[in-house]
Design a protein around this nucleic acid. Structure first.
Lengths: 341, 341
DNA sequence: TATTTTAAGGTTATCGGTAACATTATATTA
DNA sequence: TAATATAATGTTACCGATAACCTTAAAATA
């Protein structure tokens, strides 16, 4: 592969002169500059960022780590992050942790070794703490997305999970539902905990009892095997008339399960969830959801990250942004208020 | 930042010994190994992959460049690529070119300077040729996805676009549709050209005339502004009874447009498209599609890439895989065969 | 016992750049 | 004219790791 030394030799100058031409630093005569540039073109020279990073200890690369690349919430978020990064002249790399701590750890290693200038990430959960501490220890600026990690003070963009879940429950209650189940993500994830809390508050507000067995906890990611959830649902007595799921992926999984059991939505059972389905809700607006401003998560988070990177030394106080969720009423809830008492 | 020299000094050995412990090479006494490991733990040592890459001339990083990160076809593909990469001990970085040549060029630069070991990419279109030539020139192995680029011989994974489009048209014809419009991606993209061809063949097979004005060409990506497409649709006389779109995104855009015009699907107009909507089709199976094996695109493509990287020198012939598309009949097509002749 | 192996570890050069500090001419100023 | 500034370029050291070669002491063999 062509190096500055090859260029230097062919152009009859020193490597340092080539470096100066590349970086537009120092004083170079127009003649020399032209010659060096010509030789670089001729030889198809591409700077070796690896070598450069090693000596400069920085890149102009930013990293976005999300937990589910097939989830429209995160891909829309990614678009926002990308747009903001581009606006500030940064390049963006993506990683997908798949809600897995191990994969997250791998990416943290990649992040540290790739020497990116900053990281925007949705942590897998509370146990991500050591990963964040590692970033902090190595002076890699980062901004958290969607999930708080107890024990870590940092910049963060959150959705209003509690309020959103509460509103969904209230909506169901208004439609006459009194047996409302919750399918939620892992309680090691702050947003899942808040959604559970919002669910409880929503019940209380409508004088509905909270029942432990009506809550099913699983992963926010793709499930594959639905047998646990099926078993849970079959255990319930009475059957819920409505299910609230902690995110869009779980709504999809729940629908799949219900279909497999021959239950129709919303005729036999209603369903609502957190997070919209992205542009695909437009195809057939079916699912009633608490939609989050996914694009804004990415756009604002990236802005905060770049601000933080720009800071010379004095660290301004940590910023925390909470974005509200919007209730979008569609067709997945049946009004049963007239059916009984 | 802690380096092997810091570790070496504290452990009272040479840097080389530390390196040997890290990489499990050479002969090291158990005692020394234990001591070095302990010091590494104590000092929170993280190997500097940048330095390592520089000397080893390889990064163990692969790159996946897709054209639309919000498109479930590509995100599902990404999952497949990720799984295959992981299986072979590679790390994967993602980029999103957004169907834009400029962004693609940026990523090619990033790819070259980051010295990744190989690239899996869906090119933005025929004009991507120089980008591919650049990769080829710098000996970066790559595998193309979904789209051929005339003038470039290389490994590639394709869908059977022509056959898929033909089948969709035939399906519409079977349901009595005789006025079938096509909303397609740019003709500078090979898959769009093949889908147009399949559309024509489907028409011919059913003795339907091909009419230039029934084809609307736009971008495969998110449109935002629908005015051009609206104007096109309003010009048509007679109105089509069905629309075939070249991909899922365009189907969503078309649905959005139709809804804005107060047209119901499928009551007033039918719609079918290439590519499924990912897991979200399960929520409410609505759109009839020619589904591609998105996961396989990524998984097989990545396998081919890693094989190619593994090749010492002798280059085996270029491989071309064509994956069939499957017709999934759902509810977005109305049967109008009884309505007239 | 003398010689050869081997285990365990150290030294040096290098990957491709760039910062910091020379080194030249030539131009400017005293 | 001598002294000083400046433009243009070169030299050297280093970023953090590893390959290739070298050294030493203990173990195995002749």
């Amino acid at each position: 592969m062509v190096t500055i030394y090859d260029i230097a030799a062919k152009a009859g100058v020193s490597a340092m002169t080539v470096s100066r031409v590349i970086n537009n630093t120092g004083k170079i005569s127009e003649k020399t500059r032209a010659k060096v540039k010509r030789v670089m073109e001729e030889m198809n020279y591409v700077p070796n960022q690896t070598a450069r990073s090693l000596v400069l200890q920085q890149t102009k690369l930013l990293f976005l780590l999300i937990t589910d690349i097939t989830n429209p919430f995160y891909t829309t978020l990614a678009r926002g992050a990308e747009d903001a990064a581009k606006k500030h002249g940064y390049r963006l790399l993506f990683g997908n942790s798949d809600e897995s701590l191990e994969k997250e750890a791998d990416y943290v290693t990649t992040i540290l070794t790739t020497r990116v200038d900053g990281v925007l990430l949705a942590p897998a959960g509370d146990p991500s703490l050591p990963h964040l501490e590692s970033l902090r220890k190595h002076n890699v600026p980062f901004v958290l997305l969607d999930r708080e990690v107890p024990g870590m003070d940092c910049d963060i963009v959150l959705g209003d999970s509690k309020e959103g879940a509460k509103r969904l429950v209230e909506h169901l209650a208004e439609k006459g539902h009194r047996q409302i189940a919750l399918v939620n993500g892992s309680s090691s994830i702050s947003s899942a905990r808040l959604r559970l809390q919002g669910y409880k508050e929503g019940l209380k507000l409508n004088e509905l009892p909270f029942r432990e067995e009506f809550v099913f906890e699983t992963s926010f990611g793709q499930l594959g095997d639905l047998s646990d959830m099926t078993a849970w649902l079959e255990r319930l007595d009475p059957m819920p008339t409505a299910i609230l799921t902690g995110n869009n992926v779980l709504a999809v999984e729940a629908m799949r399960l219900l279909r497999a059991k021959g239950l129709r939505v919303p005729e036999d059972i209603s369903i609502v969830c957190f997070d919209d389905l992205g542009p695909y809700s437009d195809v057939d607006p079916f699912l009633t959801v608490a939609a989050q401003q996914a694009y804004q998560f990415g756009y604002m988070g990236m802005g905060m990250l770049i601000d933080r990177i720009g800071e010379r030394d004095g660290s301004s106080p940590w910023k925390k942004v909470v974005l509200p969720a919007e209730l979008l009423v569609r067709r997945s809830v049946k009004d049963i208020s007239s059916e009984e008492g």
